[in-house]
Nucleic acid binder design. Structure first.
Length: 237
DNA sequence: GAGGTCAACTTGTAAT
DNA sequence: ATTACAAGTTGACCTC
């Protein structure tokens, strides 16, 4: 926006209404209008009416849904474009102002993707280039994804630790059960009133009901085996 | 000076 | 062909 351009005082952005958004994402998008108001006196603060926006997001009726932002006056802003990629060829690092970052964050919380018109409008409001807003959202999405990946990784690590422990415990249990076999004939181990474990003395495997005794593999062993198989991803131990 | 952060860039891909 | 995006990379800046 040029300095002598008349200031936009109100802008309506239709969120979730266009741009290249994956189909599955598109379906989730709420249709939301954001309204940006520049403070008449060139406002030095930015405030977002979160209460209002959140409330409106969950509002069931389809009335116009608005978020009012009081933005820094463009004239006050550092224009990154002029300083960035400056003439000497060296790439200068732009640091977004607190206000710019906060506004971008606020918008991002409401919606992680914007269509071109929304980006342009936001860029004008923040006195940034369309490209800068675009890049910011791309990088922001990447950061979010990375963070989520880290969280997922931690969760899987814990699952893995639990399964390893369980695996160890079950292996021990199995070892103990096998160690209890004695004598050349099939061994009948009384596990409880109702269950009997039969182990073949030659092959050291549990016998099926009609292979050894009438009782068959105990529920306890069956259960343990099942657990173990599940925990180590094996079949037929 | 090493390492982290982040804006900006490059490249490949999918949707239109 | 165009557009938008994700993923990966680069380089400036900051903190310790």
């Amino acid at each position: 926006m040029e300095d002598d351009e008349p200031c936009i005082t109100s802008l309506s952005l239709g969120l979730g209404m266009g741009g290249h958004v994956p189909k599955k994402e598109k379906q989730k998008l709420p249709c939301l209008d954001l309204t940006f108001d520049i403070c008449p006196e060139g406002g030095k603060t930015i405030h977002v009416d979160h209460q209002q926006s959140k409330q409106q997001l969950h509002d069931d009726d389809d009335k116009a849904k608005g978020l009012v932002l009081c933005l820094k006056h463009p004239n006050e802003n550092n224009s990154p474009d002029s300083s960035n990629n400056s003439n000497n060829g060296s790439r200068k690092k732009l640091k977004l102002t607190k206000e710019q970052s906060a506004t971008l964050e606020d918008i991002f919380k409401l919606h992680s993707t914007l269509n071109p018109a929304q980006k342009q409008a936001l860029a004008e409001q923040l006195n940034l280039k369309h490209r800068q807003v675009e890049v910011w959202f791309q990088n922001r999405r990447a950061r979010t994804k990375l963070k989520q990946t880290e969280v997922d990784c931690e969760f899987l690590k814990k699952c893995c630790e639990k399964l390893t422990d369980e695996n160890l415990r079950l292996k021990k249990e199995l070892q103990e059960l096998r160690a209890q076999k004695i004598g050349p004939k099939p061994l009948y181990i009384q596990l409880s009133k109702a269950t009997t474990l039969t182990i073949c003395s030659s092959c050291e495997k549990e016998l099926k009901p009609n292979e050894g005794n009438k009782g068959g593999i105990s529920n306890v062993v069956r259960n343990s085996s099942h657990k173990l198989q599940n925990s180590v991803g094996l079949k037929g131990i």
